[in-house]
């Protein structure tokens, strides 16, 4: 499944925080409607910073790799044991 990103328009306040935080300039402001729109979804690296920063939790992603929380992942821990 490939990465998809969506903005729930009724929730968006047009605060532009997502535009500021995104390192690859995925969003653009629709000045007329005062809301942000996804302009270049293909540039998204799935850092999820936009989703975390959005005060309206209006941004959602699907089809991305969720990073391993190493202290909860037994296989990952086993491998990292070698490092430590």
């Amino acid at each position: 499944m490939s990465l998809e990103i969506a903005v729930h328009e009724p929730s968006c306040r047009g605060c532009e925080l997502c535009i500021d935080v995104c390192p690859t300039k995925v969003f653009e402001l629709d000045a007329e409607q005062r809301l942000c729109v996804v302009k270049h979804a293909e540039d998204c690296i799935a850092c999820l910073s936009c989703a975390y920063i959005c005060p309206s939790t209006a941004i959602s992603h699907s089809g991305y790799h969720a990073v391993k929380n190493f202290y909860r992942d037994a296989e990952f821990c086993e491998k990292m044991g070698k490092f430590l």
Binding site: P23, T24, I45, A46, C47, L48, S49, Y52, Y64, A66, V67
Partner: peptide, 10 residues
């Protein structure tokens, strides 16, 4: 480090 994100870094 251009961006240190919650789920990935750039």
């Amino acid at each position: 480090i251009v961006h240190a994100g919650e789920n990935a870094c750039y």
